[in-house]
Nucleic acid binder design. Structure first.
Lengths: 99, 99
DNA sequence: TAATTTAACTTTGCAGCACAAAGTACTTTT
DNA sequence: AAAAGTACTTTGTGCTGCAAAGTTAAATTA
């Protein structure tokens, strides 16, 4: 039997990152405030996780104005979707193994 | 909608911990060497994760001799199984959401 | 019997991470 | 003019993961 945990992506270990990606898998361009509200975390914490995911090119950023207010939104990139999907597949295997 | 990542158990975030629990969910009393081989990690790393899980009372330890060699084995406790199952359920919800 | 090996750790040390809290810059609302 | 909102950045702390090396005690080999 091969080492099954090797297929899990280290970048998606944290709950917050899982949460962000999970939201961005099914919603195109979700803004900062919405993510913050959904995940119930502090500004700084969210910003740092977003930053990490962006450096990995798993998400992309769009800045615009809604009315006269600044609004920053995030979407998962193709690469991000691929990587996250692979991670979920590895998780599912693990779940099946445990069931 | 409620905060779905709150149901994820922080103790099971790491790949190694996921791996250990996953193995112990379906095997009763797996020994140190076997875990190490399956997970392909160093002695110290495995020992520290085991230690953490034991402090949480998620696993239990049995020390014995096999032939004349010392042999330490680990099994998941009822509480550990419960906690891990809940974690997996939370993960599955997240996976479904992302699908 | 001395040296090596095996099993299961413990210790050490470090870099990285999560997180909260506070600070910042700019704008809008009151 | 003051307060509030948006989206951060900075700071600081404490925890984690991990490798590598050291430890203990018994077993095997030379």
């Amino acid at each position: 039997m091969k080492n099954f945990i090797a297929d899990l992506n280290k970048s998606f270990e944290s709950r917050v990152r899982l949460g962000i990606m999970s939201i961005l898998m099914v919603n195109d361009f979700v803004d900062f405030g919405t993510l913050k509200e959904q995940l119930q975390i502090t500004d700084g914490n969210l910003a740092s996780h977003i930053n990490a995911l962006e450096k990995l090119e798993y998400i992309q950023i769009r800045k615009q104005f809604v009315g006269k207010k600044p609004n920053t939104s995030y979407a998962s990139s193709e690469e991000g979707k691929k990587a996250f999907t692979e991670h979920l597949i590895a998780l599912e295997k693990l779940i099946k193994k445990s069931g």
